[in-house]
């Protein structure tokens, strides 16, 4: 059935209201969109790495999760959920479980690109029937906006501050989606919550219902770390996609497909200028930063188009 937002939102919420994520945060929007892709008759076991999502959705004695939920530590959401999935396989074989259970792990970029990369890589390589979702907000937001390997070049964070000598983060953003694609798993995709959520919903559905390991990398802006006005959440995601800073693409059984090619590729300034973390890039004398940022993005976009072939 073709995707229809009005129909999709009729499904009962699996992450309920009352959680304590910030207004204007991308993460709960991403999580709810992904969980809407689970068939209503299926149960889910959801894991989370330590991070904003975990500490804001499951505070004893409350939980915002309608499905089963487990958090154990920061760097091991992949391994933890792989254990639960292995348990399911044997319990199902023994007739202890009727019906289907889907396994989904969530981690921020800290728990995924950095401290949890090994655990993620192991879980994906072993091919557990699970989906790992990185909600990428480009820094360690839960501990107070420290740089990560997902932080874009020049971003001002508390451990890559834009100072008088060093202009914010000096390194490039790690390309985790391609790293995961090279694990040769059946499904890898990059998405963002934009428009009517069609892109993210359909990718989540594919990821959840493709047997084997799947990985989703989803942009999830953070109003505190990125310093934007909270109502701008959806607009920022759209700008990330229209500037090709965050391309929407998928890799299905090794085949690349770029899902959206903007007719008018916007200059990167459109994305940068609405966020406080890039403000120093617009100071007189710093034009080179924007030029470099544009060049890096253009190169990566071209590379992605080549991969698509």
């Amino acid at each position: 059935m073709a995707y229809n937002l009005k129909e999709a939102v009729k499904r009962p919420e699996r992450l309920t209201g009352g959680h304590r994520m910030c207004a204007g945060c991308g993460a709960p929007v991403v999580v709810r969109t992904i969980l809407r892709a689970i068939k209503p008759e299926d149960h889910a076991v959801i894991g989370s790495a330590t991070g904003c999502l975990e500490v804001s959705t499951c505070l004893y004695p409350y939980t915002a999760w309608k499905d089963s939920f487990i958090h154990s530590a920061f760097e091991n959401a992949g391994a933890t959920i792989s254990g639960a999935e292995a348990a399911y396989n044997v319990m199902k074989k023994k007739g202890k479980i009727k019906g289907d259970i889907k396994f989904i792990a969530f981690g921020g970029d800290g728990g995924t690109y950095d401290i949890g990369l090994q655990s993620l890589s192991g879980a994906m390589e072993r091919g557990h029937d699970m989906v790992y979702v990185c909600y990428d907000n480009g820094a360690y937001m839960n501990t107070g906006i420290q740089r990560s390997s997902a932080t874009p070049t020049f971003a001002d964070t508390t451990t890559s501050p834009a100072g008088s000598v060093i202009p914010g983060k000096t390194q490039l953003k790690k390309d985790l989606t391609l790293i995961m694609a090279n694990h040769n798993i059946p499904y890898v995709a990059q998405s963002a919550p934009i428009g009517n959520f069609k892109d993210l919903h359909e990718k989540a559905e594919k990821a959840i219902y493709t047997p084997g390991a799947a990985f989703l990398n989803v942009m999830a802006p953070c109003p505190r770390g990125w310093r934007y006005d909270t109502p701008m959440l959806m607009q920022i995601c759209k700008l990330a996609v229209d500037t090709c800073i965050w391309p929407l693409f998928e890799v299905e059984n090794g085949k690349y497909k770029v899902n959206y090619k903007p007719k008018n590729k916007l200059p990167v300034e459109e994305f940068l200028k609405v966020q406080g973390r890039f403000r120093h890039m617009f100071k007189k004398g710093n034009e080179w930063m924007i030029e470099k940022f544009q060049k890096d993005i253009d190169e990566k976009w071209e590379m992605l188009l080549k991969l698509e072939g």
Partner: peptide
């Protein structure tokens, strides 16, 4: 698993899942 950290993490996930 790919490490002992993941070994114990997977054990935790599995045991919590009912195994």
């Amino acid at each position: 698993v790919e490490s002992e950290h993941s070994a114990m993490s997977a054990c935790i996930g599995a045991q919590a899942a009912g195994a």
